[in-house]
Design a protein around this nucleic acid. Structure first.
Length: 983
RNA sequence: GCCCGGAUGGCGGAAUUGGUAGACGCGCUGGUCUCAAACACCAGUGAGCUCACCCUCGUGCCGGUUCGACCCCGGCUCCGGGUACCA
């Protein structure tokens, strides 16, 4: 039994042991309380895991192991979100089937995950690209298709209940609907009898508009480079999140899911979730509820009217123009003949401006007068109608009433086009400069809701709040509008014109979509010769040979988006082998919802909203017993990478001229030749994050690279910190990247470090494998926790990892010394028990509070104390190992079984119970403060009488000195805390 | 612009939530062991001063509440993240 701490051998051995003995396998077991810990679904990318990924996994693993030790039956599964764009892009480039790429990537992920020693029950693994899995994704889609949202019962119902309503009462327009998202549909009204007379085709067309999964013409985010549409949350900064390609607006027939029907419930139920405030806030903003009113404006000399939505109906008397979106459906009807050309030109221009240009250019004001007017419903005045691209077609009614004085954008628009800016709200703030009602003097719009209405007929003198109420009353009384709530949330576009996704289980008959029968699921993704669109621009599935329903009907050719499979995966883990149901009753009634969900905040408005939506839908259908997927949610911070930027250059005329880079400097991304450097080629342990250095070229290898060896000599050469000061004059001032003052005629290399997201393209990726190779998984696990609070983002640095590794070696030495086993069965001393129970208390509290970082020092302190006490006692060490085992499962398992001689796994142990008796102190060393400043410490028993303490403290030499003979004004005594003397 | 976070030694970060600021680790300095290294161990390490004592200053800045403030309140500055013509 040779015994040195050999992390490699130990970790491999126990990982094998756990796997062989299925230690982490869980079953539904009603004799124990359940606990469900879920990690966010990883997409298995080709790059593998970097050190940032496991941060959350380690935390959840610690929590799972802890809960298990506490007697819970813990479900802790892992799987793969295996459909997705990168594998398909790779397939397009190489011709390799995305399934193969995905498989290879998953293997690599699995190897990496295994090496970290996670306690996943791998028998429950799911892959969204597996037909056994996507069969049920398709099944849920079919359920969505055959459902509608009943606003009366406020839940989803089978479409048959809608048909019954139509048969009985017909349909009477918008009042009956819950259509409130980006998709507005025109429905004719009809009676029950008329409905019965309608042809099947007409009935289906009408029903389609009400289904939760529906097909409609809608403006979508079309990404030409990816050849697909994208949903709003897949676009960041106006470009595609994957790949950064430009996106344009396009009208297309698309599958959508009616998430907007759930807007209010998604919003309200946030209040009952134990999620971080930032995520809840992000969801609230994304849902974007605003309460206001619709108002109808009659178009002069016509039967048309324009409906607007406003949150400020109180400002109705301040309307000086109406602005409608370029895509507004009524536009063509209401343009004055003299203006047709101008309007057409404007609309054309506005439509062709890409989404990105629009966003990059929000300050540009543009618009076009239509030549027509509406009549103000209260004053009868003429109000001009404009087309303006600051009005969004998809929000509200696609038209706004322009209240120039009280809305920033309306104000800017009015100013630009010299429209009147009538003021109707007077600020209540006394020192206001906006006293005057002359519009020309207004410098900016007064948007605030604290003010008094003026120039507004029956609203005069009312506060904004009261005026809003009053205005809605009046608007409703006159039948020109009504109080209305709008949501920013849009329906989710559900089709992707791509290959690598779940086929939508729909075929077309007479141009109408029908779902295939549930018994025919799964609809298998067919093979295709190429993963590209066809020549006529059809999605890749059009390439599949003889792929027709019943040999004659066309299948839907688009596939589901990446988030389809991830919207319900937490359910499948409960019962992943079930071939009869998406999840069986026993499993779902036992596991219910996720108790703890750990993942990145980047999913705040995408995945986390969709999974809540699907959960609510499945609940409405009576298919699952819970309304929310996850009770508690924690976001782990991002571990960023340090990127080294290198520039070679030469000084000419006091300018630093970049003369180029070489093949190790990748991806120049601007004209100045900013390049990125492969991280292994240069030193990266540089402590000053913001520092930039000029490195004489002789320290490089002649190819622009600065190696470790040379870096050391460079540092001793230049004493770079002094150098830095000399170059900038003053180190407080951070220079711009290219603004250099150089001396001499030498060639230099500029090195700069930046903290950025870890990514392959930035050459700043650190993988867990390297760390595990050198220090072991236990060290990695402890170190990732030791880095700081879980939620905080931080750059990866290995500074300090040695300390954690040393701690494990020190722990080892409590058990072994030069191959000799030191463990004995002596009775523990009071001090030893105290050290142990301090730890038990701390670790338990820390884990319950998800404060994993603070446990690590507690372990260190405990081991330090036990080392100082030369404690090798079984009773103490045994509990210590169990406490530590969630963090460092391998070393503790090794010592548990081989040093302590246990025959069962430490995983099956029980977390030691904390006994406060061991921590009871009989005395306390009171800090003695004079005027709040700590001056002295005096030890007293805790039972000591405050009066006695006071007299002893006042007699103390140090205290006497500070009193300078004066009597203290006041003495504050807090038992067990402090004594403060006020002089 | 708006919405969330955050700011503590040379570095990562602690501080029982109003009670001894800087735990623990890294780094650094000195020492022990060694032929030497590695490992390990011991001591010191916020800044300043007339440097082991003493004292002064010290948790981004300004002000307030309090016997007492990293913590609470008011007003800023900077950094990170999210989001944006949403009427």
């Amino acid at each position: 039994m040779s015994k040195e701490y050999n992390h490699k051998q130990i970790e491999e051995q126990w990982q094998q042991f756990w796997a062989d003995n299925e230690i982490y396998k869980v079953k539904e077991d009603t004799s124990k309380p359940k606990y469900y810990v879920l990690d966010m679904f990883p997409y298995p990318s080709g790059a593998g895991l970097h050190v940032g990924h496991p941060l959350g996994y380690i935390a959840s693993d610690i929590y799972s192991r802890y809960k298990r030790l506490k007697g819970f039956n813990v479900l802790h599964p892992m799987g793969y979100d295996a459909f997705g764009l990168p594998a398909e892009q790779y397939a397009i480039q190489t011709g390799q089937h995305p399934a193969i790429t995905t498989d290879v990537n998953i293997k690599r992920y699995r190897e990496q995950l295994d090496k970290i020693g996670f306690s996943y029950d791998w028998s429950r693994e799911v892959r969204t690209s597996n037909p056994d899995y996507y069969k049920w994704t398709q099944w849920i889609f079919i359920k969505l298709f055959h459902s509608w949202y009943n606003p009366k019962t406020d839940k989803a119902e089978p479409i048959e209940t809608l048909v019954k309503i139509f048969e009985k009462k017909g349909f009477h327009g918008v009042d009956d609907t819950i259509l409130n998202g980006g998709i507005e549909m025109d429905f004719v009204t009809f009676s029950g009898n008329e409905w019965k007379q309608f042809s099947e085709e007409k009935k289906q067309k009408i029903l389609l508009g009400f289904r939760l999964a529906y097909l409609s013409d809608t403006y979508v985010n079309w990404c030409p480079a990816l050849g697909t549409v994208l949903s709003n949350d897949e676009i960041k900064d106006g470009v595609s999140e994957r790949g950064g390609h430009s996106v344009e607006r396009k009208l297309m027939k698309q599958w959508s899911l009616k998430i907007t029907a759930y807007a209010e419930r998604l919003l309200q139920d946030l209040n009952y979730l134990d999620w971080t405030d930032s995520i809840k806030e992000a969801q609230r903003n994304w849902i974007g509820k605003s309460i206001g009113s619709s108002i109808e404006f009659i178009v002069q000399n016509s039967t048309l009217s324009i409906e607007v939505f406003t949150t400020r109906p109180d400002t109705i008397f301040g309307v000086s123009f109406i602005a409608i979106a370029p895509e507004h459906e009524m536009l063509s009807e209401l343009v004055d003949p003299d203006f047709i050309d101008d309007v057409a030109a404007y609309v054309d221009e506005a439509k062709n401006r890409s989404e990105r240009e629009r966003q990059a250019d929000v300050k540009r004001i543009s618009g076009q007068f239509t030549g027509r007017y509406v009549i103000h419903p209260f004053t009868g005045n003429e109000i001009p109608i404009w087309v303006a691209d600051y009005v969004l077609a998809g929000y509200g009614t696609g038209a706004v009433m322009g209240v120039a004085a009280h809305d920033t954008r309306d104000f800017a628009f009015a100013k630009h086009f010299n429209l009147p800016i009538p003021q109707v709200v007077k600020p209540t703030t006394p020192e206001s400069e906006v006293e005057t009602l002359h519009a020309t003097s207004l410098q900016e719009a007064f948007d605030a809701k604290d003010g008094i209405l003026v120039n507004s007929s029956f609203l005069n003198g009312l506060s904004v709040k009261d005026a809003i109420k009053r205005a809605i009353e009046e608007i409703e009384k006159r039948g020109i509008g009504k109080g209305k709530t709008n949501y920013r949330l849009r329906d989710a576009i559900f089709g992707r014109q791509r290959y690598w996704g779940e086929p939508i289980p729909v075929y077309y008959k007479d141009g109408l979509p029908y779902t295939i029968d549930e018994s025919e699921l799964p609809l298998i993704l067919p093979e295709v010769d190429k993963y590209l669109p066809t020549e006529d621009g059809e999605p890749p599935l059009a390439r599949a040979n003889n792929w027709k329903y019943q040999g004659k009907y066309e299948y839907e050719l688009s596939t589901m988006p990446g988030w389809a499979g991830s919207s319900w995966y937490f359910l499948r883990y409960m019962d992943n082998k079930n071939t009869e149901e998406f999840v069986g009753n026993v499993a779902k009634d036992y596991w219910k919802q996720v108790d703890l969900y750990i993942g990145g905040s980047e999913h705040a408005t995408g995945h986390l909203l969709y999974v809540r939506f699907w959960t609510k839908f499945l609940y409405d259908m009576g298919l699952i017993p819970m309304k929310e997927p996850a009770k508690k949610l924690i976001n782990q911070g991002m571990i960023q990478g340090l990127t080294n930027y290198l520039h070679t250059g030469i000084e000419t005329n006091n300018q630093f001229e970049i003369i180029g880079w070489n093949d190790n400097i990748q991806g120049s991304d601007n004209e100045l030749g900013r390049g990125k450097v492969k991280i292994d080629d240069v030193i990266y342990e540089i402590s000053d994050k913001n520092a930039q250095w000029l490195v004489p070229i002789e320290f490089t290898d002649g190819k622009g690279r600065l190696y470790k060896d040379n870096f050391d000599s460079f540092i001793s050469f230049s004493q770079f910190k002094t150098n830095l000061r000399r170059l900038y004059g003053n180190e407080e001032k951070k220079p711009d990247r290219f603004n250099w003052i150089l001396d001499g005629e030498r060639r230099y290399l500029v090195l700069k470090q930046e903290v950025e997201k870890m990514s392959k393209s930035k050459y700043n990726v650190v993988t867990p494998d390297d760390i595990i190779e050198e220090y072991g998984a236990d060290t990695l696990r402890l170190y990732e926790m030791f880095l700081g609070p879980l939620e905080q983002s931080k750059p990866w640095s290995t500074q300090g990892i040695e300390g954690v590794h040393r701690f494990l070696k020190k722990l080892w030495r409590l058990f072994y010394n030069d191959n000799a086993l030191l463990v004995n069965s002596e009775e523990p001393s009071k001090q030893e028990l105290k050290a142990l129970h301090k730890l038990i208390k701390k670790v338990g509290e820390d884990i319950e509070n998800f404060s994993f970082n603070t446990s690590v020092p507690a372990f260190m302190i405990c081991v330090n104390e036990l080392s100082d006490l030369k404690c090798n006692k079984r009773e103490i060490l045994s509990d210590l190992l169990v406490c530590l085992s969630p963090y460092a499962p391998h070393i503790t398992e090794e010592l548990w079984q081989n040093a302590l001689g246990n025959t069962c796994s430490i995983v099956t142990a029980a977390f030691p119970s904390f006994n406060s008796d061991y921590l009871v102190e009989s005395s306390f060393s009171y800090p003695i403060s004079i005027n709040g400043k700590h001056r002295e410490n005096i030890e007293f028993t805790l039972e000591a009488n405050p009066a006695d303490i006071e007299s002893i403290v006042l007699a103390n030499e140090t205290v006497q000195k500070w009193l300078e003979g004066k009597a203290p004004k006041k003495v504050i005594f807090v038992k067990g805390k402090i004594v403060n003397i006020v002089v």
